[in-house]
Nucleic acid binder design. Sequence first.
DNA 1: GTCCTATAGATGTATATTGTATCTATCCGC
DNA 2: GCGGATAGATACAATATACATCTATAGGAC
Lengths: 124, 124
Amino acid sequence: MSTASESNGTLPRHYLKPCLLLLLAEGPSHGYELLEQVRRMGIKGAEPGGLYRYLRAMEKEEMVSSWWEPSQAGPARRTYVLTEQGRKGLNESVQSLREVREILVSLLDRYDSLQPKAASASRP
Amino acid sequence: MSTASESNGTLPRHYLKPCLLLLLAEGPSHGYELLEQVRRMGIKGAEPGGLYRYLRAMEKEEMVSSWWEPSQAGPARRTYVLTEQGRKGLNESVQSLREVREILVSLLDRYDSLQPKAASASRP
DNA sequence: GTCCTATAGATGTATATTGTATCTATCCGC
DNA sequence: GCGGATAGATACAATATACATCTATAGGAC
């Protein structure tokens, strides 16, 4: 257990799947590119191993489908698209994400209304 | 993997520790009560096993300290208080939580600006 | 008194999820 | 033909989580 720093500066990898669904809702893509996109989105700790695993898992669940596509520069890529079901899945996970956001907001509000002493780190 | 519903209506248990630190920053408390409080806060899936284990772990890290206290009704309780270090830990994890909140907000905004078709679930 | 329930805390263990390292393959420039 | 960037995949160890179980105390029902 690493205390307080287990999600330092990054979205927990926990949100990888919703992120992937969102990115694929914006258009078809392939693993390597998705990796860079999720990193740019804030999941800095995302790494290829887990990402490819998630993609294959989501395919097994029929949230996405894929095929090989030759690249004009470099090795062939597996291109992923969102399925009808994946879009439903995205809608659903967005709903839970909204709840998470609300809870997070109220938790942070609660922190902010602690005695000033405790808030020393955020108020100079 | 259960797709899209793994955090349905609840804060991932992942946030248990920050929650406990916040609750203890509001005042000393004991495990059984903390359990109910975190559940009320939104971590509905919290269960005694993990919670007590977290508390002992946090004590080993000197984020909290505890002692036995007799109860006027029922068995003795172990009362926990936040230590100086625990308060620092809270401040730090609140900072990452703020980042998480920001990323979540931008992710949801991004979802909301998808083609109307995709947003059918949230706009009647 | 003894049985049942609520309160309180703790542990053991099976299973899932993650992190990390490693491996293959293709194409490009040189 | 070699090294580096791109692309995808897997194995295995380390952690985390869920779930069941165990102890103990106080209070009330009977």
